[in-house]
């Protein structure tokens, strides 16, 4: 039996024991995350090529992004990373009340992130800051919207999953490996933002 074996989930075919089942789930999620990394690698390559081509556009465009909102969104995602660790741990230890509370906090913080992002989009669009404005600044907005929209879609998917997990936990049907997999996915979304924050908001910030 694996050293990572834990109580909680019923062992299903074709797994030999809870540790085998848990390790297989983790390996599957990491394989999924590795291909997600390739997807974001393409987007970061797009960023690199455009920034090298038009560095002034990126400095000018970044000045239009409010770094204070960037810090707030980063703090929300980092804190939600901590609460989802607690959720996953609670699921493994079969502590349902703290699982539901931690998932609820994670969901609320993810929603807060999306609300701030939506406010930012409204501000930018209201000021005509779109990919269709003429170069040199247009290239920045093109990259900005592509990267942040794909990231926000990943956040949205995570929130849908967390909402479903809360419902399942309230019905006592949640499996700890499922929570573990969703938590690993959420951390990946967090890591992507850790890089997006300085690359978009802190190129040439204004006090």
């Amino acid at each position: 039996m694996s050293a990572h074996a834990k109580p909680g989930d019923r062992v299903r075919e074709p797994f030999a024991d809870p540790g085998h089942q848990r390790d297989s789930a983790v390996l599957g999620i990491w394989t999924f995350l590795a291909q997600e990394l390739v997807f974001f690698a393409a987007l970061f390559s797009y960023y690199a090529s455009q920034r090298l081509r038009t560095p002034e556009a990126f400095a000018a465009g970044s000045r239009e992004c409010d770094w204070r909102l960037g810090v707030a969104m980063t703090a929300l995602l980092l804190t939600s990373g901590a609460t989802v660790v607690i959720a996953s741990r609670s699921a493994a230890l079969q502590r349902r009340a703290s699982l539901v509370a931690a998932l609820g906090l994670t969901l609320a913080q993810g929603l807060g992130f999306l609300v701030i992002k939506a406010v930012e989009y409204r501000e930018h669009l209201g000021h005509g800051q779109t990919p269709w404005v003429a170069d040199p600044v247009g290239s920045f907005w093109s990259v900005y919207y592509v990267l942040t929209a794909f990231h926000a879609l990943h956040v949205l998917a995570g929130l849908a999953v967390f909402a479903a997990l809360i419902v399942a936990a309230l019905r006592r049907r949640v499996r700890s490996n499922t929570v573990l997999g969703c938590a690993l996915y959420w951390h990946f979304v967090d890591v992507v933002w850790i890089f997006l924050f300085p690359l978009l908001y802190l190129i040439d910030p204004q006090p």
Binding site: W30, A34, E36, F40, G81
Partner: peptide, 22 residues
């Protein structure tokens, strides 16, 4: 957070492969 440090080597290999493609 992702307890990668405590996972089996095969998981490390998958994570490193993703980083390598990036």
């Amino acid at each position: 957070y992702m307890h990668l440090a405590r996972e089996p080597r095969l998981v490390h290999a998958v994570a490193l492969a993703g980083l390598g493609w990036l």
